[in-house]
Amino acid sequence: MAALLLASRPASRQRLQVLGISAPPGSGKSTLAASMVALAGQQGLRAATLSLDDVYLPAAQRQRLASQVHPLLATRGPPGSHDLALALATIAALRQGRPCALPRFDKLADDRLPPQHWPRAPAQLDLLVVEGWMLAAGAQHRQALMTPINALEREHDPDRRWRQWCNQRLAQDYPALWQQLDWWCFLQPPGWEIVLDWRAEQEARLAASQQRAGMSRAALEHFLAHFERIGRHALATLPCQAALCIELDAQRRASGMTWNGFTPPGRSPAC
């Protein structure tokens, strides 16, 4: 799949190409991005990855949002939990050809790593692969926010304050980042229901690699409830917006693909 994505990127006169991979949690996008970087290196390209997961706001800033706006904002992941200024500044530095430290986030500690532990991208980078679970997603219509989508929203957001705030952030703040993408693809799972299984497998691998306890399945289910609204919205809208949509089977293998051309991220053409 990495070879297909590299080969399908459009010709560009820009020195740096920014390619995006959008897919639900646990779908393998980080592994795919790393494979693309490795393959690009074999082709003589200087390449690096940047994940939306690596530009989450530090825990202290999310706690302030939880106190000032809504308690659910303490949880990383939904719109409004990212440091968009950091992401944009990083991409700007790379486009200018400057060496740059790439932010990294420790998911098990639920906090950003100190800058001295960030890897450095080389000067004059040729390819940046940006990946994220809500990459290129647009905001929902206000009417769609009226009905709770799960127990988390019913019990912890009965007045819709959290989901409206997140939706507003998605409408106003994220398009500036989405517009940095020169090309992007969407990995489409069989349905949202499989995301919990995939994310549980990912959590087990992460915990084993770092020799620390990860989240239980029950904790993961609660965690993913914060993602469900935008995740389902992405599944309904992004397949026909991405330049390339790759359908995944239950084992995360490509089972089909659709070429759409390029639609500016955040727009919602009729599928």
Results as ranks from 00 to 15, higher is better:
residue 267 R to N: 10
residue 70 H to C: 13
residue 147 T to F: 00
residue 68 Q to M: 07
residue 64 R to S: 01
residue 22 S to A: 15
residue 55 V to R: 03
residue 120 R to W: 10
residue 107 K to D: 00
residue 211 Q to A: 15
residue 118 W to K: 09
residue 37 V to C: 14
residue 220 L to P: 11
residue 49 T to I: 09
residue 114 P to L: 03
residue 239 P to A: 05
residue 4 L to F: 13
residue 263 T to Q: 12
residue 94 L to F: 04
residue 235 L to R: 05
residue 170 L to V: 06
residue 212 R to L: 07
residue 195 V to A: 04
residue 111 D to M: 01
residue 29 K to Y: 05
residue 186 F to I: 05
residue 31 T to E: 15
residue 214 G to L: 09
residue 102 L to V: 13
residue 207 A to E: 13
residue 45 L to S: 05
residue 79 P to N: 04
residue 191 G to N: 15
residue 258 T to V: 10
residue 68 Q to T: 12
residue 108 L to I: 13
residue 62 R to S: 01
residue 34 A to C: 10
residue 212 R to V: 00
residue 238 L to G: 05
residue 84 L to P: 10
residue 1 M to K: 11
residue 102 L to R: 04
residue 56 Y to F: 14
residue 41 G to M: 06
residue 104 R to P: 00
residue 243 A to W: 06
residue 170 L to I: 07
residue 50 L to D: 04
residue 185 C to L: 09
residue 157 D to I: 04
residue 120 R to E: 13
residue 130 V to F: 05
residue 207 A to Q: 12
residue 215 M to P: 08
residue 81 S to Q: 00
residue 143 Q to V: 15
residue 227 F to A: 08
residue 129 V to T: 05
residue 39 L to W: 03
residue 71 P to E: 00
residue 206 L to I: 07
residue 203 E to W: 11
residue 109 A to G: 07
residue 223 F to S: 10
residue 237 T to S: 08
residue 185 C to G: 10
residue 84 L to W: 13
residue 159 D to N: 07
residue 115 P to R: 05
residue 109 A to P: 08
residue 55 V to S: 04
residue 28 G to R: 06
residue 134 M to L: 14
residue 80 G to L: 08
residue 50 L to Y: 07
residue 120 R to K: 01
residue 154 R to A: 15
residue 212 R to W: 03
residue 7 A to H: 13
residue 17 Q to K: 12
residue 115 P to D: 00
residue 164 Q to H: 10
residue 15 R to L: 02
residue 195 V to C: 10
residue 53 D to K: 14
residue 237 T to R: 02
residue 220 L to F: 11
residue 260 N to V: 04
residue 156 H to S: 14
residue 3 A to N: 13
residue 265 P to H: 02
residue 238 L to C: 07
residue 89 A to N: 09
residue 218 A to Q: 15
